[in-house]
Design a protein around this nucleic acid. Sequence first.
DNA 1: TAATACGACTTATAAGATAAATTCTATATG
DNA 2: CATATAGAATTTATCTTATAAGTCGTATTA
Lengths: 230, 230
Amino acid sequence: MKLPHNLTQQLTHTLGLAIINGQYAVGKGMPSEAEICEQFEVSRSSTREAVKMLSAKGLISSRPKQGIRVLPETNWNMFDTDVLSWILKSKPSLSLLKEFVQVRLAMEPVAAELASQHATPSQLHSIEAALNRIEDAENGLDDALDSEIAFHSAILEASGNRFFIQLKDFINTALRVGTRYQNYIYENQHDMVNAHEQIFNNIKSGNAVKAKEVTTDFLEKILGRVESKL
Amino acid sequence: MKLPHNLTQQLTHTLGLAIINGQYAVGKGMPSEAEICEQFEVSRSSTREAVKMLSAKGLISSRPKQGIRVLPETNWNMFDTDVLSWILKSKPSLSLLKEFVQVRLAMEPVAAELASQHATPSQLHSIEAALNRIEDAENGLDDALDSEIAFHSAILEASGNRFFIQLKDFINTALRVGTRYQNYIYENQHDMVNAHEQIFNNIKSGNAVKAKEVTTDFLEKILGRVESKL
DNA sequence: TAATACGACTTATAAGATAAATTCTATATG
DNA sequence: CATATAGAATTTATCTTATAAGTCGTATTA
C-alpha cells in the first residue's frame, strides 16, 4: 500500500485504525519496523515516528527483540481524539453506543449543574445560539446533528472545568455513533427539542438542581431506548 | 542538560513536564528541533520522536517554518496517563483539586450504580479486599492512600464500561493530588471508612439506587471541604 | 499598489551505520 | 542429566548526513 504526503500522520491513522479494527492480535501480531517500512514503502524515520505516536496513545508497545505489540484495550486512551475517531470509523455497535451514553449520563448532568452556576453571558449566548439552531433543524433549516453537538459542547465549555471541556470530542463522537442508529434514539423530534429548551432555561436561570435533573431525564430516556434494542 | 538511557522517553517526560509547568508560552516559545538537540545533547531522531509523542498527546504542534508551538490547554489530553502524572508533579493547587473532585462526583456514583448491576463475584471480591485494606489502614496496618485508590479503581473496573475503566489513572491522580491537602479532606478517618463500607455493601447487595446515592454523598462531602478552603 | 518570484528557514523524509537490549541456543560444568 | 553461562541472532534505539517539502518574508517587477 502506497501513501501520499504527511507520511507519518497517514501511517499513524492507517495503523491506528487497523489496530482498533482488531486486525492485529493483542499481545503480538504487529509487523516489525522493517516490515512496516516495506509494506507501506516509507522510511524507518516515518515508521518510527508513527509507532511513537501510537504508543503515546497507549495502543502499542515497542521494545528491542520483542518487537511491536498491541496492548490490551485497558491501556488505550479512550478519551483521545484520534482513538475516538478510529472507534467511530470501525466499531459502531449498539453495546458501544450504550457505553457512550452511560458516560454522557454521568458527565453531562454535572456539567449542566456547573454551567448553571458558572456560565458567563458569552457562554450562555453560545448555548442559546446552538439551541436556536436545533429549533431551526426541526424545520429543516439547519443540520440537526451539528447543532446538537454544538449545544452539548457549549454546556461543557460553560462548566469551567477543564476536564469537562476536554470531553467535547467525546460527546461529538458519542452523538455521531448515535446517528448510526438514529431512528432508535428519539421518540419524536419535538420531545427532543423540548428537552433541550428545558436544559437551557434552567441553566440560564441558574437553577442548578433542576438543570441537572432535566439533563439526567433526557439522557436516561436515550439510554432506555438504546438498551431496549440490545 | 544531559540525559541517560531511554533518551526519547526521558526527553518526552522532561519536555512534557516543562510544558505543563508553563515554562514555554502557549502559541509560541518552544525551541526548534535543532535547539532541543543541542540543549539536551540528543540526536534529531530522538528529538523528533519525543516531539511526535507530545503532539500525539495534544501538547504541541510542529510544522515547517512555524516551528514547534505549545497548543492551548483545551487541546491537551487531560485523561492521558502521562499528562496526568505531569500535572500531579507540577500543579497541585486547590482549584485543580476541586476540578478533579467534580469529575469524580460525576463519574463514580454512576460507576457504583453500574457495578451494583454488573459486578462479577471476582470483581466484588476485589472491592471487598480493598475495603479490608482500608479498614486495616485505620489501624495503621496498611497504606491508607494505596488502599483507597485500589477500592475506587475496583469499582470502576466492575462497572463493565471501558470508558469508566480507563479512568482508573485519573482517580489515582485525583487521590494523590488530594493527599497534598489531606488534612482538609476527611473530617475524621472513621467516617471515611464507614462511607466506604456503605458503598461496598450497597454494591454487593445490588442496590443500584442506594449505591449511587451513598457514593454521591461521600464525594459531595469531600467537595464541600475542598470548596470551603478556596 | 499588487502580484509574483525568489531566498531563507524549519520541519519532513530518506538512507546507512553503530549501539543497546532481549531472546534463544549451544556449550560447558557440576 | 540438569543448570548455569557465554555468545550469536534479532529487533529496536540512537546517531549522522543528505535531500525534499512547506511556509514565511522580502524584493522585484508590472
